[in-house]
Amino acid sequence: MTNQHYGQFCGLARAAEIVGQRWTLLILRDLSVGPQRYSDLVSGLPGIPTNTLASRLKELEEEGIVERLAPSSGERAVVYRLTPRGEELGPAMDALSRWGAGGMRTPRDGEIVTTASIAAALKVAAGDGIVPEDWDAAYTVRVGEVETHLIMRDGVITVGPGAAEAPDLVITAGPQIRDLLAGELDADTAIATGAVKLEGDASLFARFADTLHVPYSPNVPA
């Protein structure tokens, strides 16, 4: 890695040396959603200098966290994905994401949402991802121009990019979805105030609102 060593034989110090550089955690977040081409990473990380992206990917490969896959039949571009060691970072990234979201109420000027940021937020909000075995619901969640899906099926929640193949409910939301996930906006109020718009089986929205939760941290200004 190009960053300086901290000079300590410490797991946290070693982790910080590897993932503590600018943009690295967001690259890992995007790859946690699924394998990505270089062009996918560029479009999903607006503002990242291409030389920085190339450098970070090279460093992560050298650390055994990211690997390149040869183009498949009909494809010309290399695809990047997390290795098993890279996937081990998932719980740590989820914890950091939950902690950061605890202080987020409204977007700051210039802040945008991306497919990976919404997918990661929903994954964190799902907690342990366990739901009753008899639940079977597919949601498409739209925030701005971004579409993600969330499936409650066979006792587990899965989240990913893009719309659900056959959604039972499509939820279109704006920034107030953060208040919904924090529990400060209940399902009925969210619908009544227009904070969300629903298409499909509206009775499934309460289940969504009650299951997904990322509270605000205490002492964070309103």
Rank of each mutant, 00 (worst) to 15 (best):
A119G: 12
A119S: 15
A120E: 15
A120I: 11
A120S: 15
A121K: 12
A121N: 09
A121R: 13
L122C: 01
L122V: 14
L122F: 13
V124S: 05
A125Y: 06
A125P: 12
A126M: 05
A126T: 04
A126V: 01
A126I: 02
G127E: 09
G127I: 03
G127Y: 08
D128R: 06
G129A: 05
G129L: 08
G129R: 01
G129N: 12
G129F: 11
G129H: 00
I130R: 15
V131F: 09
V131E: 09
P132R: 11
P132T: 04
E133S: 12
E133A: 08
D134Y: 06
D134H: 10
W135G: 00
W135H: 03
D136L: 01
A137L: 09
A137G: 05
A137C: 13
A138C: 05
A138G: 04
A138K: 11
Y139A: 02
Y139G: 00
Y139N: 00
T140M: 01
T140K: 03
V141G: 03
V141L: 14
R142A: 11
R142Y: 02
R142N: 08
V143M: 13
V143T: 02
V143Q: 08
E145F: 11
E145G: 12
V146L: 09
V146H: 04
V146C: 06
E147C: 06
L150R: 03
M152H: 10
M152F: 13
G155V: 09
G155M: 08
G155T: 00
V156C: 13
I157Y: 04
I157K: 03
T158W: 01
T158I: 00
T158V: 14
V159R: 05
G160L: 11
G160Y: 12
P161A: 15
P161S: 14
P161T: 11
P161L: 09
P161G: 13
